[in-house]
Design a protein around this nucleic acid. Structure first.
Lengths: 100, 100
DNA sequence: ACATAATATTAACAATACATAATATATGCT
DNA sequence: AGCATATATTATGTATTGTTAATATTATGT
């Protein structure tokens, strides 16, 4: 196994902890775990998570601002998708570690 | 590459997001990145992070309660170490993803 | 142009987290 | 027993975050 070297994480603690903050809320994590399977509309996500539409919109808006989600409009629907390849990798790792 | 299957993450979103919350603060992340290299005393961690002793103690106490850090007393010093192998793995993954 | 469906924004409040200061506890030394 | 050092706890003010309700915007269909 490779040597443990977290020095670069330490240098970037502010940035990385910010990213992780996005995953630190159960609904946000649930959103991301759903969206990683494919783009979803706000409506789909709202029903899936069982929360108020306003809350969902705020969560999505926040994550879009943070650059981890992207959005595209199709008629009246807006599809959200994963915008950050690193986060995609991280979610997969999380699944590997916590769900086997 | 293996199929993406995050269904189990979804089942455990509450638990997993809780763990990630611990990494979502720059100082807590810094602490963990330092401790993963080997057990450290409160004093070492305090100086390393450059924060007040009381703050450090509260961060450490919190993470110990959450079960991600362990502590053992040696004379007047208390050494903190990683208590959770899964978190250890996760930190390594984070390093892989964000620091290469 | 109007009604409707989907999404976003704003405001107000409650809950949580952080920083700081002050005090308390535990251990070792003399 | 008394003192010094290391660590923990408590209390308080402040900031951040989450929730809810109300309102606004954007696009579609008639």
């Amino acid at each position: 196994m490779k040597n443990i070297d977290v020095s670069k994480v330490i240098d970037q603690c502010d940035i990385v902890s910010g990213v992780l903050k996005s995953l630190s809320h159960p609904i946000r994590l649930k959103i991301l775990c759903y969206v990683i399977e494919g783009d979803r509309t706000v409506n789909e996500l709202t029903e899936y998570c069982g929360i108020a539409q306003s809350s969902m919109s705020q969560f999505l808006g926040r994550m879009r601002k943070e650059g981890i989600l992207s959005s595209r409009r199709v008629a009246t629907n807006i599809y959200y998708g994963m915008a950050d390849p690193k986060l995609k990798k991280l979610l997969k790792s999380i699944k590997e570690i916590y769900c086997k």
